[in-house]
Amino acid sequence: MFYPNSPQTSPQLTQIPYGQQYAMMQRQIQQPYHPFATTEPQARLYPYHYQGPIQQEQGGFITQQSTAASPQYVQMRVTPVDQSIMSGYPNQTANGSSSSSFNYNIHPQQQQQQQQQQQQLRHHAMPVGSVPLQDDRYRKQLIVNYLAPDVTSTDLHELFSRFGELDGARIIYDKQTNMSKGYGFVYFCHAEDAKEAVERMSGYEFHGKWLKVGYSTNPLNIVPSNSSPYVHAGSRGAAG
Rank of each mutant, 00 (worst) to 15 (best):
L166H: 06
A238E: 03
S66L: 14
Q28A: 10
V81E: 07
V81I: 08
P90F: 15
M126K: 05
M86L: 09
Y73T: 03
Q119D: 03
M126S: 04
S153W: 14
C189T: 07
V231Q: 05
A197M: 03
M25D: 10
P132Q: 12
S70L: 14
C189V: 04
V78Q: 04
P132H: 13
Q12R: 05
A43E: 06
A69C: 07
S84P: 13
P47C: 15
Q113W: 15
R137G: 05
A148M: 03
G60I: 15
I29G: 06
V198K: 08
D174H: 10
S180R: 02
Q28L: 08
R122E: 04
D155C: 03
N91T: 10
G208Y: 02
G237N: 04
L156Q: 04
P41V: 13
V186L: 07
M201P: 02
A169Y: 01
F36P: 04
S6V: 12
G52E: 06
Y204W: 06
A68Q: 11
F185R: 00
N5K: 08
S6E: 05
N218V: 00
P224Y: 09
G203N: 02
Q56A: 10
Q21D: 02
L166M: 15
R170D: 00
P11N: 10
V213M: 03
V198R: 03
H49E: 06
K209R: 05
P224A: 09
V223F: 11
A239P: 12
T217C: 03
Q42V: 13
F188S: 00
H124L: 11
R27Q: 14
S153V: 04
Q30R: 04
G60C: 14
T154H: 11
S99Q: 13
R162D: 11
Q51V: 13
G19D: 13
P71K: 03
V81D: 10
Q114E: 06
T39Y: 10
Q21W: 15
G52N: 07
Q92K: 12
G184P: 06
S66M: 12
L45P: 07
S235D: 11
S225H: 06
H207Q: 04
D155M: 04
Y146V: 00
P108R: 07
Q64C: 13
R44N: 06
G168W: 01
H124W: 15
P4K: 04
S216D: 00
H232V: 05
E165L: 12
Q51W: 15
L121G: 03
A197W: 08
S153E: 03
E205G: 09
Q28Y: 13
Q56F: 14
P80N: 12
Q119C: 07
N145P: 05
T79V: 13
F188K: 00
F185V: 00
N103D: 01
Q176H: 12
T9I: 14
F36W: 09
G19R: 08
P47Y: 15
Q51G: 13
R200G: 08
G19N: 10
T177H: 03
Y187F: 00
P35Y: 10
S153D: 02
M25L: 04
R44T: 13
R137V: 03
S130R: 11
I172Y: 01
V151T: 05
Y33L: 05
M179K: 06
L13V: 07
P41R: 09
G164P: 06
I143L: 01
T152S: 05
G234E: 09
A68V: 12
P35E: 05
T63R: 10
T93L: 08
Y89V: 07
I16F: 11
G96R: 08
F61K: 04
A68N: 11
S100H: 10
P7R: 06
T152M: 09
I29K: 02
V78D: 03
S225G: 07
Q115I: 13
M86K: 06
M179A: 09
V231M: 04
T14P: 07
L211D: 00
S84K: 04
